[in-house]
């Protein structure tokens, strides 16, 4: 019970910390002081008090994106184990629900972007739809490989099974995680797929889709994005974490790994530039190939 409470509190309170960590890492790497780590919390508090502006072309669909993004993200968060602490809800086939909840969030975000009638937002929406179609097979090939390894269809057992990196599944596991890191960067609109800090709308993917959101809806958008960082992060961290004897050790390991992941993303962002748009599909196909090879290795 206490575990579930902690799970819920983590989901509700922790996410805004992750973008802060990434930004701090990037700033430090660039030799700047950077915004405080808690910046996103301040932003959310400010946005919650601000008035929202609605374009006259928009309908209720405009709000479905932010609402759906957060609702689906929260629902998905209940399915994923945080490290070796089991997920609150776990059943056979929850993998599919997990993936499709993110599909739902994406669908509604795309629609709310198109609702503004702006060409820029349409462009971002088209890119999101295109690139995520390539990320989906990588995600599912990874699931298939893990399911093959331990004959389980439930996210909890599937992810927590490898435990340590000493089994004969080490090779495939590394490939799966490599493929999923690519998916992680793409789904969270990070360099090298998308640059969240760019000032040029023509080159954005995710940021350009929410240009017209403001006030509380925008707070939901920002929170939803950070929630995605956490939930998908748990997906790729859990198989890599060693299993500890005590629950508190597992939690500690998970939080440490999460911070490490955020710093890692910051390091990637500091060390390379965004790919040209035409290169992005190739990058995503690399993810598909990595997970595909992992699956093949599982067959051997």
């Amino acid at each position: 019970m206490l575990q579930f409470l902690l799970h819920g509190l983590t989901v509700l309170l922790l996410p805004p910390l992750l973008p802060g960590l990434i930004a701090k890492t990037k700033a430090r790497m660039a030799g700047r002081q950077g915004p405080p780590v808690l910046q996103l919390y301040y932003d959310l508090a400010k946005l919650a008090r601000k008035r929202a502006v609605y374009s006259r072309t928009t309908t209720w669909v405009f709000l479905a994106g932010p609402v759906g993004g957060v609702a689906a993200g929260l629902a998905a968060s209940a399915l994923v184990p945080f490290g070796h602490t089991p997920a609150p809800i776990s059943f056979e086939g929850d993998v599919i629900l997990f993936a499709y909840l993110f599909g739902l969030a994406r669908f509604l975000t795309i629609l709310s972007a198109l609702d503004t009638g702006s060409s820029f937002e349409g462009m971002g929406a088209a890119r999101e739809a295109t690139f995520s179609a390539l990320a989906e097979p990588a995600l599912f090939l990874g699931f298939a490989a893990l399911a093959k390894a331990n004959a389980s269809l439930s996210l909890g057992t599937m992810l927590a099974f490898p435990g340590s990196l000493t089994t004969r599944f080490t090779g495939p596991l590394i490939l799966i995680l490599a493929g999923w890191v690519i998916v992680y960067l793409a789904e969270n609109s990070r360099i090298p797929v998308d640059d969240p800090n760019t000032h040029l709308e023509l080159t954005m993917i995710h940021e350009v889709m929410v240009l017209d959101h403001s006030g509380r809806p925008f707070a939901l958008v920002l929170y939803g994005a950070s929630l995605k960082l956490l939930v998908l992060g748990a997906l790729i961290l859990t198989p890599a974490l060693p299993r500890a004897a005590h629950a508190w050790q597992n939690w500690l390991a998970f939080y440490a790994a999460l911070a490490g992941l955020a710093v890692g993303v910051g390091l990637v962002e500091s060390s390379m530039a965004r790919f040209r748009m035409t290169k992005v599909p190739q990058f995503l196909v690399a993810g598909v190939l990595a997970t595909g090879f992992a699956f093949l290795l599982m067959l051997v």
Partner: peptide, 22 residues
Amino acid sequence: LALLLWRWLRPGSREDGLPTWD
């Protein structure tokens, strides 16, 4: 969840009738 979030969005004072920020 969607209902709760929706209710949280609705009462906020709002600015209508402006063009899309293109």
